[in-house]
Computed example of a mutant assay.
Amino acid sequence: MSYWSPPEPRRVRLLVVDEGVDELKPLLETLRCAGYGITHAFGAMEGYRRATALQMDLVLLDVGPGSTDGFAACRLLKADPATADIPVIFLTSSASLEERLTGLRAGGVDYILKPFEPEEVMVRIEIHLALAESRRSRIAPATQSASPPDRPATNDDGAPGSDVDRMLMQAAERLILADLSHVLPLPALAARVGTHEKRLTRAFRAHTGRTVLEFAREERLSRAQRLLLESAMRIEEIAAAVGFSSAANFSTAFREYFNCTPSACRQAGVGRRAPDA
């Protein structure tokens, strides 16, 4: 008994990213028989490039145990407005809860554990295609009168200022801002977004005029300033919340950046608010 319905006459295009296709043959055959158009990529970053170049409706992305490339590719897709709405379903043989949470936080919509039944995958694909179509139909009325700007050509060679560099920078920014108290070292941050230190640094310089470390430092201090003015947290708590090892180090950095101490900043903020109290 079949629990899924065949797709609409429009040929839905699926991107399947997996280094080995033998175990996926039954699924791929089922998908083709159902009328789906299948594009295959043999690695996560190759899949990312194909997803950005082609009009895909959904991505099935295999992630091996301990691999980070699939998660990095997903983050890059979600950082690009042109591909952010493409549902990404992870396929994995790992039952690790930590890995599944990492994938979902990277932007995946679902996880399917191997070995799987092709019909179960079909049902999940249909569900997420329907959800994506529902989201598009809600957004379309507000945007149908506006013509989308042309996307800059993507330079796979990573030329300064390229669209890929912009997306790498945005993905890294999201990771930094998500937890300013534990900003990853540059090598780890670059690896998380699927690149290397030199290219990530170049991307930040091209698009922000700052290095990665300068961006993180300025964001930490700006967040600290808001906490000083808008919260009752003690200075020691604020220092820890934005990733400084001690209140003394925080105070020194704050004074150098804002030309006043954290205490003076808070006092000045209280003074400005006093007439409205």
Rank of each mutant, 00 (worst) to 15 (best):
H128K: 08
L131Q: 12
A159W: 00
R138T: 12
R138I: 14
A159K: 03
D165H: 10
Q144I: 12
R166H: 15
S137R: 14
S147K: 13
T143V: 03
Q144F: 11
E120R: 08
I127E: 10
E133N: 10
E133V: 07
S137G: 01
A146L: 12
I139V: 07
M167A: 03
A159S: 05
D150G: 15
R135K: 14
F116K: 08
P118G: 05
N155W: 07
S145P: 07
A132I: 04
E119R: 15
G161C: 00
S145F: 02
P149S: 08
E119A: 14
D165Y: 01
S137L: 08
E126I: 03
L168H: 04
A159Q: 11
E120P: 03
M169P: 02
S134R: 13
I125N: 02
R138V: 15
E117Q: 10
S162L: 05
R124H: 03
T143L: 11
I125S: 01
T154K: 07
E133K: 02
A132C: 05
D156F: 14
E133D: 15
E126W: 03
A132Y: 02
A140V: 02
M122W: 01
R136L: 08
R151T: 04
F116M: 12
E117M: 12
R136Y: 04
I125M: 01
Q144A: 06
V123S: 09
S145H: 13
L131T: 00
T154D: 14
H128Y: 11
I139A: 15
A130I: 00
P115W: 02
M122I: 10
M167C: 10
P160Y: 03
A146Y: 00
D165W: 02
S147L: 11
A153H: 04
P118C: 05
P148Y: 04
S145Q: 11
E133I: 01
S134H: 14
R124P: 04
T154N: 09
P115F: 08
P141A: 09
G158P: 05
V123N: 04
P115D: 10
E126T: 07
R135D: 11
E120A: 12
R166P: 08
D156G: 10
P160L: 06
G158Y: 01
R135E: 15
S147R: 14
P118F: 08
I127L: 14
A140N: 06
G158S: 13
S134M: 15
I127H: 04
A132F: 02
P115L: 09
S147V: 13
V164Y: 03
R135Q: 12
H128G: 01
